[in-house]
């Protein structure tokens, strides 16, 4: 059976997101006819470097910006019309709104948090990256929501994909209307330009303890960043968050303090030049990405390190 693979392209502010190329590259590896699905308004040029066999492009004013309802409706219609056996979508803010809708409407098994995919087997990272699960789909018909950063972007780039346009479904009377995009407020510190980041996670236990890591960051002339729970708890501003819904950083030195290393966090920091992880749990996934690991208590090691510098 030859595969027909849909890759759902993702774009924001006129820029194609890397996850799109990562998925195209993976789809080509799986084999079959790779069709990138692009939705937008006057956005056909975004497909110029898609390395897929074909691009299915739908143009509609309601698709100019991502709208969960309009995008879902359109992609479900395309899935009904073209009957792909595999659909790859990002396990991202946009992709999450699409994947489950297609799963229910087209009765296709969905596997999320996917870090690898073959024609019939999907590997997911669950429990904050502490367990892997391989799922099998006998008839090879499924949707996989792919973790950003799991695959190479270059493998998905190319040129010469034929572009076929498709009509949008009736998008009048939508219950959700897109209003605007709001850029993040500038912070006091831009963590993406720092040479040294001391990044703090749940292991710091409470807000008062931030002093300890701030002291280390100050001594190193670097800045304090964090994983998501710290920002959700309002201990640090959003501008300090590293990871999926935060920022991607590439400092020379990244010191992860009390961070377990969920896939969402890893996505934002794995390219740092030197990663040092301090976490009392020897099984924490962060140690798979760190260059140096410490399992001693952060409350002993961090102040001692600050003193030595």
């Amino acid at each position: 059976m030859s595969n027909k693979i849909f890759v759902i392209a993702e774009h924001l502010n006129g820029q194609v997101e890397d996850i799109t190329y990562e998925m195209i590259g993976k789809a080509k590896e799986i084999g079959g006819e790779v069709i990138t699905v692009l939705l937008g308004s006057g956005a056909q040029n975004l497909a110029a470097d898609f390395g897929s066999d074909k691009v299915l492009y739908v143009d509609d004013a309601q698709l100019a910006n991502f709208n969960p309802e309009a995008y879902c409706k359109t992609i479900v219609q395309l899935c009904h019309a073209h009957a792909p056996n595999i659909v790859l979508v990002g396990n991202t803010s946009q992709g999450m709104d699409i994947a489950a809708g297609v799963s229910v409407a087209c009765d296709m098994p969905l596997v999320a948090y996917a870090s690898d995919v073959t024609a019939d087997t999907i590997t997911s990272q669950l429990y904050g990256g502490k367990m892997s699960v391989s799922s099998h789909v006998a008839d090879g018909r499924f949707i996989a929501a792919i973790l950003a950063g799991a695959f190479d972007t270059e493998a998905g780039k190319g040129s010469g994909a034929s572009i076929e346009t498709a009509d949008a479904p009736d998008l009048t009377g939508l219950k959700i209307q897109f209003k605007q995009l709001v850029a993040p407020e500038g912070g006091d510190v831009d963590i993406t330009t720092q040479d040294v980041l001391v990044s703090v996670g749940r292991g710091i236990q409470n807000e008062d303890n931030l002093e300890i890591v701030q002291a280390l960051a100050d001594k190193l002339g670097g800045a304090l960043s964090s994983s998501r729970p710290i920002v959700d708890s309002k201990w640090l501003p959003k501008t300090r968050q590293v990871g999926k819904s935060g920022l991607k950083v590439k400092p020379k030195v990244y010191i992860a303090v009390g961070i377990s290393g969920a896939p969402e966090h890893i996505e934002g920091m794995k390219d740092a030049e030197c990663i040092i992880a301090i976490n009392t749990d020897p099984n924490a996934p962060i140690f798979d990405y760190a260059h140096y690991g410490v399992t001693e208590d952060l409350f002993d090691v961090v102040p001692a390190l600050t003193d030595k510098l």
């Binding site: 991202t92 803010s93 209003k179 995009l181 993040p184 968050q241 935060g246």
Partner: peptide
């Protein structure tokens, strides 16, 4: 979205 960009609906 990523990078702290917010979409308003």
């Amino acid at each position: 979205y990523g990078g702290g960009v917010i979409a308003e609906f």
